[in-house]
Amino acid sequence: MSRQAGRGTEAKKVSAELFTLTYGALVAQLIKDYESDEEVNKQLDKMGYNIGVRLIEDFLARSSVGRCHDFRETADVIAKVGFKMFLGITPTVANWSPAGDEFSLIVDNNPLTEFVELPDGHQNLNYSNLLSGVLRGSLEMVQMEVDVTFLQDALKGDNTTEIRLKFIRRLEDALPAGEE
């Protein structure tokens, strides 16, 4: 599998604060526009999904990562290459299920939540839910259907932020024409 490293691995940078505050502006707007936290979560997930299906291209073009052989490898690539590339952090992969089809990403120093404190009355809001959608969307584009949920959230007073990924199935028919 040879992929041209045409774009190079060193991506252009933008201020992390601009990114953090911009995301905050988006979440605040969604909270104004929707009635419940659950609806906001859903909308964030949807937007994340849209990002994910496009972001995977960028990821493959820049990372020269090949096809993963198993879900464990996928987990490592997501944490060490994907998160590193797009958010500048490396979550810890932990809490594998015995069957090896479920794991958690333990996210510290989440750049989305810098400056953020959840006001009272938003205990159901998954502030960083965009990430769930991004993971779901990008993995779908490499033929993996996964379920993504927030198990713990440091913003809600948990000790850490834990995102759970569960492998559902391989998608067989999603290959675009002309691809092997």
Partner: peptide
């Protein structure tokens, strides 16, 4: 924070694009 951190421009571009689309739909 000292605010010196930076991030991949793509991440911001994707986010901003979604925001524009969201606004446009409303």
């Amino acid at each position: 924070s000292k605010g010196k951190g930076d991030l991949n421009l793509s991440s911001f571009a994707f986010l901003f694009s979604e925001m524009v689309q969201y606004c446009q739909n409303r």
